[in-house]
Amino acid sequence: MSATALHPEVGVSDEKQAAAKSAGRRFGALVVRLGAIAAFAAIMAYFVIFAPGFTSTFNLINVVEQSAILGVLAYGMTAVIIGGGSDVTEGGIDLSIAANMGLCAAVYATLLSMGYGDLLSVLAAIAVGMAVGALNALAVVGLGILPLLATLAVLNVAAGMELTLTQNTVVGASSPLLGLLVSGSFLGISALAWALIVFSAIVIAVIHGTAFGLRLYAVGGHPEAARAAGLSVPFYVSFTYVLSGFCAAVASILTVSRLSASTPGSGELLLSVLAAALLGTVFSRRFVPTMGGTLLSVLFIGLLANGFQLLNVSSYWVNGVQGALILLVVAITSFARGSEGSR
């Protein structure tokens, strides 16, 4: 609406027409969005009815556990997209997040195997993760490189450093913290599942419950307006990349606990992380990424693989369905953007 004020040359009748058109598209977008959510619900309902053991508490806790690493990474990615804007080509994106996790896991496992304790090893992993995040921030904010390219370059730096450190081998690790994460449980819920629950609660509270989070959305949604309102855009954008690095470090500790080692090939997770962050937008009315939406889509991706296995459908289908859903959501998002873009 405010956009029309910036264009006084637009005639009254044009304005009405545009408003009607935009309302129509908005309605269309709403229908498509509800359609997507209905499709998610239908898949879940099908699993509930036909997949043996799908609804058992044991199975559901398993899925939450299996989603913990992807979830923590997807929060980092979501924060970057919120702060950098959700334009797929020019907006915020952190392609290095999965490789960063691999590097942090390698640092953590290597230090543990060298006999350093949990405290030092965890701190080192977090420092490395945030340093990689800071490198992204420097490239994107400081040097003004397109995030897609900047983080792609940092991906290679992180992957290369991991290879140098581990020589592409499996580094076994065990420690009291890892033992707790593997076998600990509270109220019948395993430690890894708790890790996701607590981490989710914190990021949702910070991003959606504080003025800081609101400002972050302002910076990503309309940087010029945010700057005019006195917000330091570079600070907020840099913050998201460092946060993303922090998430990578936290995920690395979870991954080492789950695999009892740091293993090569963490970079493979990137596609799922992107999928989760992008899919999450359909759970928001304005098609913006939200932490809650990301959580739902992470769980959805986990349940999809789980349901297919329980139905004894080939695991090869999971990738195909995941890819199709990403395409659908990106299509819907661009459709909804189109209505905003035409103002």
Partner: peptide, 11 residues
């Protein structure tokens, strides 16, 4: 993918 194999074994 190690992660995927572990998830598959768990299920």
């Amino acid at each position: 993918k190690d992660q995927q194999q572990i998830a598959q074994l768990q299920t």
